[in-house]
Design a protein around this nucleic acid. Structure first.
Lengths: 214, 214
DNA sequence: TTATTTCTACCTAGTTTTAGGTATTTTGGG
DNA sequence: CCCAAAATACCTAAAACTAGGTAGAAATAA
């Protein structure tokens, strides 16, 4: 143990002890892997990582103190070189996408086999983003929800939508575009009608969902 | 030509003729691949796909008539089985993520080598999501922009934020939560202060950027 | 060159939000 | 038990938004 080794240093963060213990035992058999820590909450891991070197974090989403996706983001911010693989049971597309948004290097479902997990670890270290088959499948199918009823906005409406999203009032928008406030209000009304919403707040939410905002 | 074959049927949609022509020539040399069409705009491809079988679409983002991401979504909706690989020069993280959101099976930069492209095609058909190295690199680094200044919201504030995003008025929220309207307004104010925005519309946009909304 | 859409602008009046505070009561940790 | 944070509630007045129209000019597509 006193010898310096170049095994892959792995940490688990998962509040399900059966999972972590089991995985630890299984992975430890591989002499390329070194399990450097098990954590059942995000805070203790964040403390740990300050003083210790970690190559790969296997992360669950459902942690008691902090959301796994949020934790992923934090780890990456402090420690960009660390490879983070989500190990989760969640199959919701939006959750998977959100982990990607937070810089995760991979997403596996917990039913993944041991060889698959090892393969994923090695691939991720090599720079790849890794998904298990089911996850790839889920990702490759855009959610129907956001697809239906794509309202067509005119150029002007898009422009004004942008301004609204930036928190500008009708008056400010009118001034910037050399329009009457009344005109801007008309566009506002039409936007809300097209997206079938009741006010500006809901308008922005709908616009985001339809990817109408940069 | 009259013989039925099981080569992979590939279509290009890219308005840069040099790219498509060159790639066509290169890929045609592989007798597992069958280039069934070149298109320089989205509309003509959408017509084509109605009557023809296509296994893989190589898609550019900058098309004259329709945004490539939008096209991706449409193709997938009509034709879920088709594999779509984006071939693009865009390295912005948000763009890559958006293509993923739209169900793309892969994203390669145009500087990818021919072997890499072929490999990507085969992997994607096998069900994997494929990224080129640079893309993986970009994805694994969360954008700093959205990370700074994560304001902590209280439980109640989160709750009310949700309602605001749903287009509810302070009155409606108050009624649902058995609160005074004045209280809801106070929470509103605090929310806007914490996220440093001027009104409800901007509040929702900021909340989305900080991933505070489901 | 029509026909249609888009953009522009207006009216009225009610509703809602926002800004600037203050202040009491719960709640949750330590 | 005590303290800090959170949640509740209030006041006033201005500003902004929303709903329900109508309608002429300008741009675009057929």
């Amino acid at each position: 143990m006193a010898i310096q080794d170049n095994r892959i240093k792995i940490a688990f963060v998962d509040d399900h002890p059966l999972i972590t213990q089991g995985l630890k035992t299984l992975l430890e058999r591989d002499d390329q892997l070194d399990i450097v820590g098990l954590f059942d909450n995000g805070a203790s891991f964040l403390e740990f990582i300050v003083g210790h070197e970690v190559d790969v974090v296997l992360l669950d989403i459902g942690l008691p103190d902090i959301n796994g996706m949020e934790l992923c983001k934090q780890i990456k911010t402090e420690n960009p070189g660390v490879v983070i693989i989500l190990l989760s049971n969640h199959t919701e597309r939006s959750i998977i996408l959100q982990t990607m948004q937070n810089g995760a290097n991979g997403y596996l479902l917990k039913n993944a086999s041991l060889p698959k997990l090892k393969e994923a670890i090695f691939k991720a270290i090599a720079g790849q983003i890794v998904y298990s088959e089911e996850v790839s499948q889920i990702l490759s199918q855009p959610s129907q929800k956001q697809l239906q009823g794509i309202p067509k906005l005119t150029k002007r409406e898009m422009e004004i939508l942008q301004f609204i999203a930036e928190g500008k009032t009708s008056g400010q928008i009118a001034a910037e575009l050399y329009l009457s406030v009344l005109t801007v209000d008309t566009h506002r009304k039409n936007l809300m009608q097209k997206l079938e919403v009741k006010n500006a707040a809901e308008l922005i939410r709908a616009a985001v969902q339809h990817q109408l905002l940069s």
